[in-house]
Amino acid sequence: MVETLADTVRVYLLLVRMWSRAAWAYRTSFVLLTVATAVVTGLDIVAILLIFAHTPRLADFTLPEVMFLYGTSSTAFYLADSILGTVDRLGGHVKAGTFDVMLLRPARALVQVAADQFTPRRLGKVAQAVTVLVVSLSLLDVPWTPSRALLVPLMVAAGAVIYGAIWVSGAAFQFVATDASEALNAFTFGGNFLTQYPLVIYGREWLWALTWIVPLAFVNWQPALYVLGRPDPLGLPLAFRFVSPAVALALAVVAALAWRAGVRHYRSTGS
């Protein structure tokens, strides 16, 4: 059977629709969870606002600039979270034996794990992040050249792919360590939290590590330096501001290979 990308997307959307209807069965919980997710994602920005209630600048960055970092990172993060955030439950599926069931069904296992227990309320988080991004764009005092304006949607898309790749790689790791799902949070939720602030606050060593080891600097930091018209504290060449899509692609390839290796390594839990 030749499966096209369109088939994969169709199966994914089918599963998403099914899970959305399931979520609607517990209505009070659904409504409360929708409100809760919208508010909880808003708390990070409240913390930023409280910080700026005490100081006009944080590590020389203004509030609109930090809001821009928050908006770009969080929009990318919650897009990836909405689409495939549940892959971090892979370890649970392996332990419960439900992953075996997924392998038997005529659809890609990754698509099934990604769509598992999908709920439309996750889109509320994306909306919240986009709102902050739009507000920051209206407050920023930069000359909007075409290259600057184009870089904004491009960095969000690349950022979403980077987060998605981290999620899938972390899920693949759970084929080896089924209990390790919480360690993945350090890179996903931790990565999102970290990139909401100007990376200079973490010092040169961390900045170097975030560029070359866990390349979260390409989610929003490097392109944002260009958009905000700021020099790179590490003094990297100008080309680095534009390579996020290439970094995203490379990470996606690594994630795909890791996932395949994981599925091939998988031996079920027996019994």
């Binding site: 910080i51 100081t55 944080l58 919480e182 360690a183 350090a186 970290l194 973490y202």
Partner: peptide
């Protein structure tokens, strides 16, 4: 699971420490 959790708590500790350092420097 405890090791994984401890790792994540520690990483968040570092991130939050640097954010607070930036605030308390200001």
């Amino acid at each position: 699971a405890a090791v994984a959790g401890a790792f994540t708590n520690t990483m968040f500790g570092f991130i939050r420490a640097y954010v607070l350092i930036a605030l308390w420097q200001a």
